[in-house]
Amino acid sequence: MADLATLSIAEQLGLTEADPLRLVAVPGQFLVSGAHDLPANSVADIEGGYACWLTPRRRLVVSATPPAGFASDISHGVAVFSIDPAHDTDFVAMGCALPPTALAEGKCAQTVFAGLKLLLYRRHGLLHLHVERSLAPHILAWFRQAATAL
C-alpha cells in the first residue's frame, strides 16, 4: 500500500505569482509551553531555527526537530506566508490597528487582522504571516481584494 499523499497548502489555495502573498517553506512548526526567556513580542534565532514569543509561557518554534517539553506539532495546521515587501505597510494599515513599530525587524505580534487572529513578524526584512490552515483561503481572498485598493 502506497504512502498517503500530501495535498499542499499551495495546491489547495491556487496561489499565483500575481498574488501579494507568497508561501514560505518552513521545516516544521511547534507550539511549545513552558518557561522561556524570549522577550515579549520578539522573534529570535534558536538552535535549528527560530522562535516567536506567544505568551510569557508559550513559544512558536519553527524548526525541523520537535523541541523538548510540552510541544505540539502544528506543522500541518498553519499556513506561513510572506507579504509583498512593496506594500506590506499598506496591507497592515488596511487589515489591523497595529502601529508600524510593532512590526519592526525582530518583532512579532499576534493580532486581529481582517477579522481573525493570526501572527505577524518581521524576519530578515520580510513580513511573515502565520494563519490557521483552515482560514488560509479567507486570508488570501482578503489580500487579493485589498490589493485592488493600492
Partner: peptide, 11 residues
C-alpha cells in the same frame, strides 16, 4: 501588560 498599547478590537 505584556504587549503594550493595542486597539480595543484585540481585547
Amino acid at each position: 501588560p505584556h504587549c503594550g498599547p493595542r486597539s480595543e478590537y484585540e481585547f
